[in-house]
Design a binder for these strands. Sequence first.
DNA 1: CAGTGAGCGAGCTTCCGCTTGACTT
Length: 780
Amino acid sequence: MKNLVIVESPAKAKTIEKFLGKDYTVRSSYGHIRDLAKKEMSIDVDNNYEPQYQISDDKKALVSELKKAVKEADQVWLASDEDREGEAIAWHLQETLKLDPATTQRIVFNEITKTAILHAIENPRHIDMNLVDAQQARRVLDRLVGYEISPILWSKIKPALSAGRVQSVAVRLIVEREEEIKRFESKPYFKVTAHFHPIDSDKILAAELNRHFDTAAEAEAFLKSLAEGSGFRIAKIENRPARRSPAPPFTTSTLQQEASRKLGFSVARTMQVAQQLYESGYITYMRTDSVNLSQLALGMAKQEIAAQYGAEYVKTRHYQTKTKGAQEAHEAIRPTDLTAQTINAENAQRRLYELIWKRTVASQMADAEIEKTEIEIDWEPQSAEKERMVFQCSGEQVKFDGFLKVYMESSDEEDDSQTVRMLPHLPEGTRLSLDDCEAAQHYTQHPPRYTEASLVKKLEDLGIGRPSTYAPTISTILKREYIIKEDRESEPRHCTVFTLKGGQVRQTERTEHGMVEKNKLFPTDIGCVVNNFLMDHFTDILDYNFTATVEKDFDEIAAGKKDWHKVINSFYVPFHKNIRQTQQTSQRTTGSRLLGVDPASGKNVYAKIGRYGTLVQIGETNSDEKPRFASMKKGQSIETITLEEALGLFALPRTLGMFEDKEVTVSIGKFGPYVRHNGKFYSLGKNDDPYEVPLERAIDIIRIKREAEQQKEELKKVYPHEIGQQDGDAVVANIGKFGPYLTYRGENYRLGKDIDPLKLDLGTAMSIIDKSAKKKSRKK
DNA sequence: CAGTGAGCGAGCTTCCGCTTGACTT
């Protein structure tokens, strides 16, 4: 062995090893190998912000392996990604593995092809310390912000909370959207639609009036005037050619958005499935901010499109990224082999793959050519309005489908009632008759709440976060309970509808179903209180432009124009002063709200945040008499809980009655709601409400648990069950947490659910053991 | 293993960005 190449990802290592041949060994660093110690700040603030790095726990074994590999190599090549983090990874490797900077080669390639890699080997360089320093500044800043603000939240609001440059802005977006929705005043309006047909044919034109009415009176008056209208005709036809272009190839963020819209995947699921596709070699790297395709991919796409759809469908396109702060260390996400339109894999993988295939191929296809048609219909007599009223219908005809043959990007807009349709060919001046007309009441809609994917898009637009952190950021703010993801349905609304048919105007009433919002992000009480606190005291860090501003500094450090210590110092001095001041002067914040007076005791009732979550309280905190407390239920919030609901929470523990001459009580404990009987505890089911559950159900729960325990006792009598001896060792069947299994020579083998281990003979048992033993060794 | 919330004070919690482990019975 002569050469050791170190890359970041093991899947990449495998591919590259094939290109480089026998003289090269390729190993992976699995990302960063060193970081600031987790436990403490690990930045020497008084000593020029010197970072104290240590090898991450899960990398210790790897580092010793790499050290061994270095010893055996004549030449080491550091081939981590070509961006800030990649450069830092290379530097940490150089430091940790004690490589000589003078002889160690740094190489980069942003596509994994033989030519690109050989080209990289021929053009090595040394580590760019400016770029490394930019990363150190980024790392140190994030640590300072996160580790100095979080403890303030622990003392002023609640333990174990967190704040950070990225997560706190994500929470702010969701809180502010909710406030916007709360402020939004939904207004009713009347939309007028009608059906016409030409006098001498049975073609139908569906049209909409070019204005809305604010009141029922106006709508009704309009329909009455229309009943007397005559001379309906096509006043104007406008045909306009239009083109539509395909969307660029997928980045992490756009893949997450489309998989959410088209496949209903959460952001985390998309990344998990994409990782599987990547490891199986089906797609290129899935954490990328680049829309660039390699020459190889462009060639493949051209060939594939020409072969499948014809040469007129080919259009080679080079896309430019518009994303703020993009580092473009990788290609866009694309299939490694574009001739494979689908793959033989499990459902989720296949569907995500097909989506990636379509998007990639479409991105290299011709524009769609469309003819748009607008028709205006007028009539006599028109009232003396300032604005001329007309009915409009619009249609589209695809002249050349181009990329639409393969793929169309979805949008987040939920209201696409304006479905585009083809219009019949009719000349201008065609006389029409009015079949019917409807003026229906609608309500203006509040702005939509964020989904995981639309939040990612917003963060990306602001230049906040990176492809590798979008999914983890969402799970962090969910875990902290700053936000929740759920479905909510808005209240159904009452709508008045006027219809005109056969010269008669009729009024009917309809109920418009509530809009269902699926998998939307809502702020919690904690999220709102923390956000308000941070907005009050750390305005600059919560600023939507904070990241963009510091990124400019990092760029200047990378360009060698600024010293990273100075950049951090000018941030830290005022920041830390603010930290000290906030710690000393700001009040403890509980988001407390007075709900009213408890009629039983005459004391005040409050809703607020406590050390363990939201609670309601009867009585004053600072009085001689200790107040009474009760936790809120899931779904209740400080803002919306009523006095009655709050008082209802004090109903626990409830005594339900007697069973076997002992009291049965219900309450909520550390591990959730439970029934207590004769000194024993029985957990309530998922659908049982401790405030409502009747005695009969509680007794059922007790009986079910007793039966289960008895069954367990029975099993204990039979198991472990020796099936027989094989070559002098026992084959034993047992039942564990995950079902029945066999033990033989210290190894466990899972059994199928439908197998009764008691009826298993030794021969069948051994064949099961042999089969899964083979699988195990293959895995190793 | 079946609360807590006040107050005392011990010790705990926390960031963002790179990457994939796992043993599963």
